[in-house]
Design a protein around this nucleic acid. Structure first.
Lengths: 345, 345
DNA sequence: ATTGGGATTGGGAGCGTCCCCATGCGCGAC
DNA sequence: GTCGCGCATGGGGACGCTCCCAATCCCAAT
């Protein structure tokens, strides 16, 4: 069925020009007689010629492909991220190939091999747990690389993160201003920098206000763990009057426990603040006050950064932290003077 | 920084063999002296040689890449699908490149060009609205292609779908057996075959039982639309005692309206059944009875089908429909003798 | 009319790999 | 001891394109 691939030679012959001329028409490297351009284009269209990117890659050294390494996609956040990435990079003529790494480092090692074999022009490492050895390996390969939403101590690697510290601090200050005194934090995962930073922001805000955290518990970003810990917290002598939860996903579980199991009213009895502004956060069922991850800006910064590194591989690494935004809804008591935000842009 | 790429020539020279021999070692096409194999492997490892897939593609005509075309990824369903696809295909030595098509057909036309230029070995068209002309174009290109979760009238194209008709019928029969008489359906989108099939399953079950549908409303798979329509339904003279909603996403919104706005109890006052078994469906907040999309089997079937078409492009197209499974939870009244399912596999 | 210069053009090599083919080598059989 | 036979090996040519460079052409200027 597959009519044999049409090549520049076929087009050249049919258009009465040389093969390099056809090539020039499609790569617009140097000028070609406008009349010929038109003729070549017409013939090409008629024959159904489409430039073979593989051949172009081989001798140009650019594959026009970007590899993006992800751990999971079940979480909607990364799906959205991937989609936006892809669109941003497609616009620049790149296509995006995905590589999934379970969090085992063997996987990741194999994936780096794949990335190298596939000759990608650039790599986005999104939220995977990675060893320094790994980052070193990628760097040594010389392929431009940006870490997305994943902190790393290595100073030589570019990265884009949300300002988790500030976000945690902001959320906590909001609770404090609203008059809460017994504030607990259901934290992320102590091995994930974003969780740690949110926690540190929480602790910093508490200390500045001269308050003692009622609790600060590692919940591994897992909803069920957060639910268990919430039950425990409310069976103690002194119970919290506010909870700062390290992500929305856990916060939804926490709300469920508070309302359905413990019969508490939110925010009258307990205030809850989450993190991420997941799409469900503004459903009336949850109506969750939360810190929004500035996803579009993060994507944008990452894509831009990666593309400039591809354009000039010698440029210094860069680290960008993008501030979050507190989205005020109904799950946390409001400090005087603050009003609810209505529309979600 | 980027040490120049190590090629088979470099390895050959360092190992004291010819370039073709190195090639043979890595493509294990014909036999090579075991001693040399080992030496070449050792040298390659030391030099950090990795076969260049681009060069291999150019020469062999196989890119070992699969293109998957998606409309959206915000919906968790496709994120999961993409991940599973990628894993299944990686296992067979393919990498997966994603292409996003908004639902405009211009987009899609451009994407086909990209797919052709990128020389993908196979295409998965996942849930995008596509014209017959488009499918024709893909077919004419000779690239193997499978439609995933998207029906199409064209008999010559392979596809894998969930059995939406049976699923809709099953859900409806469940409601009927539980004694409901005033059943309404909040449908998907009349231009999407999966929505239409679910609706037809609903109508078939009703007819078989000799019942008149109380309503059957196109909600475009949009949560907010479903919420509006729910309000309307319950402001009529005769109100439903059961709702079959065309996907979980809408069902969550419907539950919200029923409980929070209308003060109804589920399932005592109204039964609700959804479709998809989204991860949130088993949260206690929703506890939604729903029809599970048999995603793993669908992925599996699609990957297998695509790979066999790649292996033998002349093989006939195939259509597979995979039956769904009713997951019984607490949002719908239970017929006598039916018990709740507990574990989610 | 001749020449110089810029714009176009075609020839040819090469990107890294795999495949076809011919060579060479070793070993068993006569 | 010589002749095959077969397997391992290397040479050379593709794959489709881009790039370099030399050749050509046209036109203006001398």
């Amino acid at each position: 069925m597959a009519a044999d691939r049409v090549t520049t030679y076929d087009v050249a012959k049919a258009a009465g020009v040389s093969q390099p001329t056809v090539s020039r028409v499609f790569s617009r490297s140097t000028s070609v007689d406008p009349a010929k351009v038109e003729r070549v284009r017409a013939v090409a269209r008629e024959l159904g010629y489409i430039p073979n990117l593989v051949a172009r890659s081989l001798n140009s050294g650019h594959s026009f492909r970007i590899g993006i390494v992800l751990a999971y996609l079940k979480n909607g956040f990364f799906g959205e991220a991937l989609q936006d990435f892809s669109k941003a990079l497609n616009k620049q003529g790149y296509s995006v190939t995905v590589y999934f790494a379970g969090n085992s480092s063997d996987d990741i090692d194999g994936i780096i091999d794949d990335l190298l074999a596939d000759q990608v022009d650039g790599i986005v490492l999104a939220s995977i747990s990675l060893s320094n050895a790994l980052v070193t390996r990628v760097r040594k390969s010389g392929i431009p690389c940006v870490l997305f939403n994943r902190g790393q101590s290595d100073p030589d690697v570019s990265m884009v993160t949300a300002s988790n510290f500030m976000g945690g601090k902001q959320a906590t200050e909001f609770l404090i201003k609203a008059g809460h005194m017994r504030i607990a934090h259901l934290a992320g995962w102590r091995k994930a920098l974003n969780g740690v930073d949110r926690r540190d922001g929480f602790l910093a805000a508490m200390e500045e206000a001269g308050l003692e955290p009622l609790a600060c518990i590692d919940c591994h970003f897992r909803r069920t763990v957060a639910m268990v810990e919430t039950r425990k917290l409310f069976h103690q002598k002194v119970v919290p009057d506010a909870l700062f939860v390290a992500n929305d996903h856990m916060a939804f579980g926490v709300l469920e426990v508070l309302r359905e199991e413990l019969g508490l009213r939110v925010p009258q009895d307990v205030s809850v603040i989450g993190y991420d502004d997941a799409p469900m956060a503004d459903w009336k069922t949850f109506d969750l006050t939360t810190v929004r991850q500035p996803l579009p800006q993060m994507i944008d910064a990452t894509a831009t950064m990666l593309l400039s590194e591809i354009a000039d591989p010698s440029r210094a690494s860069e680290k960008i932290e993008i501030p979050g935004e507190l989205i005020v809804r109904g799950s946390a008591r409001m400090p005087a003077g603050v009003t609810r935000m209505t529309a979600k842009p």
